[in-house]
Computed example of a mutant assay.
Amino acid sequence: MIVYGHRGAKGEAPENTLPGFIHAYRHGIRHFELDVVLSRDGIPVLVHDLTVDRTTGAKGGVCNYTAAELADMDARRNTTSWPRKVGIPTLEQLLDQFDDLEHLQLEVKKDARQRLNILCNRLTEIIQHRDLYQRAAVTSSDPWFLREIRRRDKKIRTGLVAERKFPRPLNIATRLGCEYFCANWKILTKDMVELAHRRGMHVSTWTVNRIHDMLQLEDLGVDSIITDYPTSTRMFFDNRARALLQLPVREEASPEAGTEVKMGSDESFHLTPGEGRA
Rank of each mutant, 00 (worst) to 15 (best):
G5H: 10
L18G: 06
F21C: 06
H23I: 01
V36Q: 01
V37M: 13
S39C: 03
H48E: 14
D49E: 11
R54C: 12
T56E: 08
V62T: 01
Y65R: 13
T66H: 07
M73V: 05
W82K: 01
R84I: 06
K85T: 11
G87E: 03
P89W: 15
T90M: 06
E92V: 14
F98I: 07
E102H: 14
L106Y: 03
K109T: 08
A112K: 08
R113M: 07
Q114W: 10
I126C: 09
I127L: 06
H129E: 13
H129L: 09
R135A: 02
V138N: 10
S140A: 14
W144G: 03
L146I: 08
L146Y: 00
R150M: 01
R151T: 06
D153G: 05
D153N: 15
K154S: 15
I156G: 04
T158M: 11
N171R: 13
T174A: 09
L176T: 08
L176W: 03
T189H: 10
K190I: 01
R198S: 11
W206M: 12
R210S: 11
H212L: 06
Q216Y: 11
Q216C: 09
T231F: 00
S232P: 00
T233R: 00
M235H: 10
M235L: 15
N239T: 14
R240V: 08
A241T: 12
L244V: 04
L245V: 02
L245F: 00
L247H: 10
P248Q: 11
V249A: 09
V249M: 08
R250T: 12
E251N: 05
M263C: 06
G264E: 02
E267S: 13
S268H: 10
P273G: 11
